[in-house]
Amino acid sequence: MSGKTLLCRCEDVTLDEVEHAIAKGHTDIESVKRFTGFATGWCQGKQCLIACARVIEDKTGAFPLAPITPRPPVHPMPLGMLAGLANVVSTERVTHHERGAVRKPNVGNGEGESQ
């Protein structure tokens, strides 16, 4: 019988694969994520993040100080439901918070600036 422990069920990443990535020098959690593909599937890491972080601790001696960047969304969202959002999401608040907002094309305050 095969003895597989699946750390990431969504992308079929085994314990062996995570260990292999670490052995290849991908020792920080963001790099392990990219090399193995854990946390990039349906659940986006809800099930596997801790399991992988613990393997990193076991192999490198240090538990990661921070997780992978939590990126939206936490649950999959149908495009059709988002399509009408433009009508209710105002851009006004964004510009308010981010006063430096720029429009492209825009040139910095560089010397050779010309347009």
Binding site: Q44, G45, K46, L49, I50, A53, R54, E57, F63, P64, L65, A66, P67, T69, P70, R71, P72, V74
Partner: peptide
Amino acid sequence: NVRTPAFELAGQAGVEPRASLTRRCF
């Protein structure tokens, strides 16, 4: 199974997720 805090939503809003070394989670 191990229960692990669902820090993602707060994290997206700008709240830093941190490791809890005692519980080995974030």
